[in-house]
Write a protein that binds this DNA or RNA. Sequence first.
DNA 1: CTTCATGCAAATAATTTGCAGTAAG
DNA 2: CTTACTGCAAATTATTTGCATGAAG
Lengths: 136, 136
Amino acid sequence: MERFKDILKASNLKSTHQRLAILECIDTHGHIDIETLFELILQKYPTMSKATLYRNINDLLAFYILEEVKLPQQKQKYEIKKVPHIHLLCSQCDTVEDIFVETNALFETISSQSGFQIQKSFIVMNGVCKRCLSKK
Amino acid sequence: MERFKDILKASNLKSTHQRLAILECIDTHGHIDIETLFELILQKYPTMSKATLYRNINDLLAFYILEEVKLPQQKQKYEIKKVPHIHLLCSQCDTVEDIFVETNALFETISSQSGFQIQKSFIVMNGVCKRCLSKK
DNA sequence: CTTCATGCAAATAATTTGCAGTAAG
DNA sequence: CTTACTGCAAATTATTTGCATGAAG
């Protein structure tokens, strides 16, 4: 994917097969943990080592290309950095959905109530997704 | 503290010195990670082992006496389970403050927009706290 | 060519488990 | 007394690092 080559170049990172595979894999999965990511990439690049994976994840985080996603009760996951959004974690099918919602009203309330100056937010909702709800 | 003895008894857990120390320590600190907790308890109970600490944390989580707090860029922390609240994480002094805010409006928006049925939420705000703001 | 990234193995850190002894109720 | 809990050591699992080789630009 050309898109990722450009992103890497912008941070002076070389576009190795491994790095591109990591980015594409995270991109198509949306949210993924190290172990799953490793297994998926191994299928395409049998020589991929975990050291490389960890090093790349850390580098990509440092350059703000990736973002960590810490969900309750789950192993740490990663996603491609995008505009701020809310995570909807379904307790039935275990999938994570992203949703874009206006949160200014909430931010306002919090600021005026506490004097805290909000820079960014991390919001996860736990519940049951549309699909699982309609299954009953 | 009698309060914790009652809580433990309600879950058929014995009130050992170690357990009470863990609970009191987490209670007074608000949010604390394993390593810090271990060092603090060692001061009071020099024989405390990490195996016991981990086992107890897991048991207390299983009985919903503790709750995990996963903050961005931080080691996993724990807190005594309380009513739902929002975490305010200050990027200057690194402290976490709890705040109780009405979130129904946001929940409503999310539900109607996505069809997701919310059961609980985990919300962290990153920014600068009142104290640090006034220091300038 | 030059520099940076990879793979392997070894090192370190984090967490869990088995088991014999100890304390809570 | 009986059962559950603790501490220690060993076992697993997760993550990082050093170094020689290989690939990207």
